[in-house]
Design a protein around this nucleic acid. Structure first.
Lengths: 391, 391
DNA sequence: GATAATTTAGATACAAGCTAAATATATTGC
DNA sequence: GCAATATATTTAGCTTGTATCTAAATTATC
């Protein structure tokens, strides 16, 4: 097998075009001279690259701005090039056990449409599940006023291990049932490329992009709710492990029960069963615990204390194995989890020599869709010059 | 800053030369036609690349082999090119607390010289330490009959966290003292490029190269002795984390004391203190425990059982966070640790949904030097076209 | 309002590296 | 010795780049 494809002269154009495109994605606009300085290419090459990218639809040439007396520009006016953020769109999906949400975003990641639907029941057949997902996608596109043919990639997060090739680990769960469908069905119906990923991994991508881990290369995001999953980024790359189960801490019950496939909600139920709290008798839920603790309820405070201890132990074991710079707590409980931070931070040095910074996600329930959009954009950016844009 | 250097036509030659070189490193020899098939280049380009590499000293052209009547070759005889494994050499260092070992290897990794020295005492000044290390390097080169000027890189393993840039984490230990010296001193004395790494990380490189994890991309190596450290490879890459402390499990004592900076030897001492075993009264040591267990001693067997349990828990927590395909046990106790494998393997499914294969290292006390050689070779291979070979 | 200075655009010449096709060379087999 | 075969070498041409020169469009100055 040709281990490395031959490097033909066309490779140069691809490399240089990618460099120009990368810069234009981050900037409002750029002149030829700016691009020369940035890439080190000569003007002739820069112009050739830009004409090329205009022809492919990825960038546009802006009209000359009228003269600005406040900031007069000497010399011949420069041609100005800008990234075409509407060259296409991506979909970000959060496929939960009960609900699916879809978000449409342009190529700069600005969300322009959104839709959400709940499944009729937990045990509906795979076909119906895929049908609902497809519906949510079409609704989101309609809300955005975009044509399905302009979708360049679909990022999709599910609560199950997914390996590097996008295959679902089938050792457990019913997920395998409808996964196999999703990729081929959406490919067949719309021609879309679906990029399946674990939801905690997408949360990590989202948090690094637009959350509290912005720009952090060694980042772990804990997606805590009924289930405890971690998305791990090391040196800016997502960790998957052999079967995609990296960060799947469901079994990690050795650590005094933390993350024994229950998490915070289970603690709340224990507490509720014990009859504690001002709002005792109502349904046990994580938010209620935080509420009651804020009201000064002793039992609720004790639970928060115990949770801090458990969280600190979990984070410490992550710190020992991965040594992240920062750990972000996200998911259903994130809003209220701020109350846990002091307790966690104070305990960490007892359990690890390299305690990470611990923060709470600001992304709320959008954490997975934001990450899914980022995942899709990463694919589009990596493959821009191979993708054909629809007129 | 020029985020990406401009891609000039010379880049093509570099890429293609690297591809040819990569193949020749793995093969005995290759003809132009073979290289054409492999790279997809035309004959003219392949020959040009080879002439180039010959000029730089990386490959040689072989003489025509005399005709072999048993295997007659039609047509004009092909020119045959081969990797020049003696174009340079690398050093692999294992810098321990008490002893330093150096191995000299050619560019295919065959060890051609070796040397070892113990430090006079544990608390000698940094300068003396570096002096001993330099001595060991020179002795190893002399044993191999090689000139120091032909050393292209030095891989060095130490028992401390080292980040991606080769800097030692200075939060603890005396290591910081003599690290700072090593790189600059060897650079100054011999012009060598020293690549510092954590010893467990190098063990992982070594095990994947020439140990029981050959070819496994998601691999963890436990370096167990007085201290418990893990070298983690995910998708073929070493994990470092923010400060290089990934895999530093010294603090991971939450898991029922496993790896609480003591490991197996501590267990042996506990056992010895209790007066157990046929050889009770002698110095407590890990090998003795295995010896006595093999002799049927009940107390020793109980210790092995407890060790299996602890090891299983440690490996399970690694499996939950990293999901490796395989975990290799290496270090001082590796020889005898085979006895633990059945106990560990049997317990794993209780603690993790994704149990890895568990094996014992066959590399013995060479595990770190082998990895250090691989680390140095990786550097040389990545930078071959930038390195200047000494005549 | 003409002219100079400045900045960018565009054109021309040429170099590096690759492909493709034609021609030359060395070996085996009859 | 001659055909067949596989490889080597040469020549022309393509793509992409650099370097350099000239042209164009704007501002500043007299």
């Amino acid at each position: 097998m040709p281990h490395a494809a031959a490097a033909t002269p066309q490779l140069l154009r691809r490399v240089n075009a990618q460099a120009v495109l990368r810069h234009l994605r981050g900037a409002d606009a750029a002149t030829g001279t700016e691009l020369m300085a940035l890439t080190g290419l000569t003007r002739a090459s820069v112009i050739a690259v830009c004409e090329d990218l205009i022809g492919r639809g990825w960038i546009v040439e802006l009209d000359q701005p009228r003269a600005d007396p406040a900031n007069p520009r000497k010399g011949r006016p420069a041609r100005r090039f800008a990234f075409n953020r509407e060259a296409g769109f991506v979909l970000g999906l959060d496929i939960g056990a009960a609900t699916t949400t879809a978000a449409v975003a342009d190529l700069r990641g600005t969300v322009v449409g959104r839709s959400s639907e709940s499944f009729r029941a937990a045990d509906i057949p795979a076909q119906e599940r895929v049908g609902v997902i497809d519906l949510v996608c079409r609704q989101a596109l309609e809300a955005a006023g975009k044509d399905p043919r302009n979708v360049l990639a679909v990022g999709a997060g599910i609560a199950a291990p997914v390996d590097r090739d996008g295959n679902v680990l089938v050792t457990q769960r019913f997920w395998s049932l409808f996964d196999v469908g999703l990729r081929s069905v959406l490919k067949e119906l719309h021609g879309w490329t679906v990029l399946l990923e674990n939801d905690a991994n997408l949360a990590a991508l989202g948090e690094r992009w637009r959350g509290s881990g912005a720009g952090v290369d060694d980042l772990v995001v804990l997606l805590a709710g009924e289930r405890l999953g971690a998305g791990v980024m090391e040196s800016g790359r997502l960790l998957h492990g052999r079967g995609g189960a990296a960060g799947e801490m469901g079994y990690l019950d050795m650590v005094e029960g933390v993350g024994s496939s229950d998490g915070i909600a289970a603690l709340a139920r224990q507490w509720s069963a014990a009859g504690g709290g001002p709002s005792a008798g109502g349904p046990a839920s994580a938010p209620r615990v935080f509420e009651d603790a804020a009201a000064g309820d002793a039992a609720a405070l004790a639970i928060l204390d115990r949770m801090s201890e458990r969280m600190a132990r979990v984070i410490a074991s992550i710190a020992s194995l991965i040594n992240p710079e920062q750990v972000v707590i996200g998911g259903a409980v994130a809003e209220s989890a701020g109350a846990l931070l002091p307790g966690i931070t104070a305990r960490l040095p007892r359990f690890t020599a390299t305690p990470p910074r611990v923060t709470v996600s600001p992304l709320g329930d959008k954490i997975v869709t934001v990450g899914a959009i980022r995942h899709a954009l990463d694919f589009v950016e990596d493959n821009a010059l191979e993708l054909e844009l629809a007129g």
